[in-house]
Nucleic acid binder design. Structure first.
Lengths: 344, 344
DNA sequence: TTTAGCACTCTAAAGCAGCGAGTGCTAACT
DNA sequence: AGTTAGCACTCGCTGCTTTAGAGTGCTAAA
């Protein structure tokens, strides 16, 4: 079901105009401002066709048309071009991410979400790197005082986790060292996913034969793994949705903001698009999750050394400046990948 | 300017009723539901007096009265009793905080703000413990590989900061150890505030004589101090303000939510009440900050081992269930103090 | 000093008219 | 056949008037 060239141009015009103004678009507007060289009457006919084909819809009889979900989809797939960033936008993305090579990964992530929302004027969200998917590098235990120690766990992708633990029995430095190096040897290179409870138990049995200690350390290890089951989701610019005319009513705002407070839900939503490479665009009901079926979610995966770590995206009303947002997101992910991959 | 007993009872009734219903309170309502044993006409006269004395105000001529800021203040200071928590509330505070003795301080804080907002149905905020005010305990450097090391900085109140640094020159373990123990010796027991740039420079000069290294470690030290200049503020239940009838308009919502996004501002606000012991109640314009002069802020300081670390509070419209919110906050802070102080 | 009664005020809700943007249809034009 | 001008029609929006009701302040009687 291919559209005629003329229909394409008209659809394009309607979508573009509606994205800008948030108002229904009338035939007159299309005729005048998008110099198609046809009268409004002709365009009216074409628009009626497009409506019948479900690319456009009418809020009420005497209003202009707005793009339907199908219309946006067609626009995204066939009509829009490649967006261009202004120098200013380019610069702020660059600056806020490239400077931080020394910083910890969580800070880079937090920065990324901040720029993304401030540049796009949308709400943006990013899944923190999944602890689970990174691999064990080393573990240390620092004695703090007579009874307590600090366990530090380091993974390849720059994660550093630490916990204070009780060392029930006082332990000679030599013994402690022995235990720790045993663990390091056993665990090195495993992904955190692979450090299962059963593996831990096995190790524990193994060690108990030699030293009756570190019960606590193991509890910690398990706990810390369980806790991090799920990566954090960082949000930026949540108030930006208040500027969107489609969220003028308090109920809608409430609905969206409550959604944003449910971190685990956001995680699920972001996780679904994780496998796919490149940019994923989900318009309206293309989103599986009910609460965002009036929104568009645009996401992209980011990587460390070519391995996908998490995803970052923008959420807003289906009336979104796709072309531009996609360009921004693409640029940001490139920069993010580079920043993360270099010197790690 | 003491109020007559009767006026007190009427003022009490008006405040109580308005807190519950959010509507202006008429003389009839007071007469009927608060069994004062007077007719509405009498109460009308008294209310007129109270209005003249600025305890009450009238939205418009033919409406009931609502408490003025002064009215709320009087209520808080002289009229309200001690609130009682239900068992359920008591329990959820207890449970969400007492279980976590082993957890890190930031998680306890995060939990606290979550319970507080969910129990009170208000937005709650808590200032993370001030890194600045805690004292240096020890510092370690763990070599990660040939060129990088992990600096771990531990303070008395359970803070653990860490950073990956480049060790430009490779360094023998012995030398590294020497430097670190020198630093530990010099810095132990100082509050982080006291670790000024000039002190660092001094140490640096001192060390340079012996070892031409660790430039990076010092940069880190300085940076990390500067970064943490300001404690984090945790927010909970930001969407709760949407349930308050005084925030029905999108502009007000916008105003409040934007405020919530400015962490540094929230910090300032919380910091002002830091010195005072016990519960601080700021109603309307009693707040210094313009943006919250239509709100009431109730805060309390929390402590570790009797030393004030930060403050936790609730923010909402001036029409707030003071009695109850205060009881909840008081209970929460007690629990929080206990949880934090035990075994640290 | 208290209270019943009453006139008065003001808001919020409901009903109604006119405006204007935009449509669909028809007939004329190229 | 495709395009366009013209026109009647639809319908939400705006502003106006009206009405109902809640609550007041005042006065005069108890």
């Amino acid at each position: 079901m291919e559209l005629s060239e003329r229909k394409k141009r008209i659809l394009h015009a309607v979508v573009a105009s509606h994205i800008q103004t948030a108002e229904p678009v009338g035939s007159r507007t299309v005729a005048r401002s998008y110099r198609i060289g046809l009268s409004s009457a002709t365009i009216r006919n074409e628009m009626a066709d497009l409506e019948e084909m479900a690319y456009l819809e009418q809020p009420h009889t005497s209003a202009g048309r707005i793009p339907s979900q199908k219309g946006y989809r067609y626009y995204v797939d066939h009509l829009m071009g490649a967006g261009q960033l202004t120098e200013k936008e380019e610069l702020s993305i660059c600056r806020s991410l490239s400077f931080d090579k020394m910083r910890e990964i969580e800070q880079i992530i937090a920065n990324a979400v901040r720029v993304l929302s401030s540049v796009t004027n949308q709400t943006s969200l990013i899944m923190g790197p999944q602890f689970q998917k990174s691999t064990f590098q080393q573990m240390r235990i620092l004695p703090l005082d007579e009874t307590r120690g600090l366990v530090v766990l380091i993974t390849d992708s720059g994660f550093i986790k630490n916990k204070v633990i009780d060392l029930n029995q006082t332990l000679s430095p030599a013994e402690l060292h022995q235990v720790v190096s045993y663990l390091n040897q056993k665990l090195y290179g495993l992904s955190i996913d692979q450090v299962t409870t059963s593996l831990i138990n096995e190790l524990k049995r193994d060690l108990f034969r030699r030293l009756e200690i570190l019960e606590q350390a193991f509890i910690l290890l398990e706990e810390s793994l369980r806790e991090e089951q799920q990566a954090r989701v960082f949000l930026g610019g949540t108030t930006n949705i208040l500027n969107q005319p489609e969220f003028r009513s308090v109920e809608k705002i409430h609905q969206m903001l409550s959604l944003f407070e449910k971190e685990s839900l956001l995680f699920e939503i972001l996780e679904q698009n994780l496998d796919e490479d490149g940019i994923v665009i989900r318009i309206g009901t293309e989103n599986e999750h009910e609460d965002i079926q009036e929104c568009t979610l645009i996401t992209a995966a980011y990587k460390i050394n070519r391995r996908i770590l998490g995803s970052v995206g923008v959420i807003g009303p289906t009336r979104m400046d796709y072309q531009w947002v996609i360009a921004v997101l693409r640029r940001l992910v490139d920069q993010l990948n580079e920043t993360l991959s270099s010197d790690r």
